[in-house]
């Protein structure tokens, strides 16, 4: 066991964990940030996606040790002062979930995508999100939500 200081959602959190324990396990089981989900533990489903320095990352594949220097953002850190991020709001407005278990990972994946490309085409959305599974099959609405969010985030758009 070692002591690590993680920068999570803007807060510095001290945590004791084995160096090779995954970031997913630490977030869920030691920091009680359960919005990040376990789906496969193998980087195949995207449910555990968080942002590491702004980039969508599978937290089930990242040892906590290597996340210690990064800025980590989880689903709990997206809303600011109770105001949903544009992407959260778009998912809510489109009703882009059924059971909702994939939603955290989808939203963080979309956040990373829209950070890199402000106005992605449908093909670019599909390509970027391909690693995320929604077993309920809500894909068409998720694509619509990402498009809606990109409009909300466009320069000059009023929110």
């Amino acid at each position: 066991m070692g002591d690590f200081v993680l920068n999570v959602n803007g807060a510095r959190l001290r945590v004791s964990a084995s160096a090779e324990e995954t970031l997913l396990s630490v977030l869920r089981n030691r920091l009680n940030l359960t919005g990040t989900k376990y789906g496969c533990g193998e980087g195949q489903c995207g449910a555990c996606t968080v942002l590491l320095d702004g980039r969508a990352t599978r937290s089930c594949l990242v040892p906590v040790e290597s996340a210690a220097k990064a800025k980590i953002v989880t689903i709990e850190g997206l809303a600011q002062n109770g105001k949903l991020s544009a992407i959260q709001q778009a998912f809510l407005d489109e009703g882009a979930f059924q059971c909702g278990y994939c939603t955290s990972g989808m939203i963080l994946g979309a956040t990373s995508l829209l950070h890199e490309r402000h106005n992605p085409t449908e093909e670019q959305i599909v390509e970027a999100m391909e690693g995320h599974i929604c077993r309920c099959g809500t894909y068409p609405r998720i694509v619509e939500a990402v498009k809606r969010a990109s409009r909300l985030l466009a320069p000059g758009a009023s929110r």
């Binding site: 940030l33 919005g35 997206l78 809303a79 959260q88 809510l92 939603t103």
Partner: peptide
Amino acid sequence: GRDFVTGK
């Protein structure tokens, strides 16, 4: 619905 987009 809000609880599903905030991880709550």
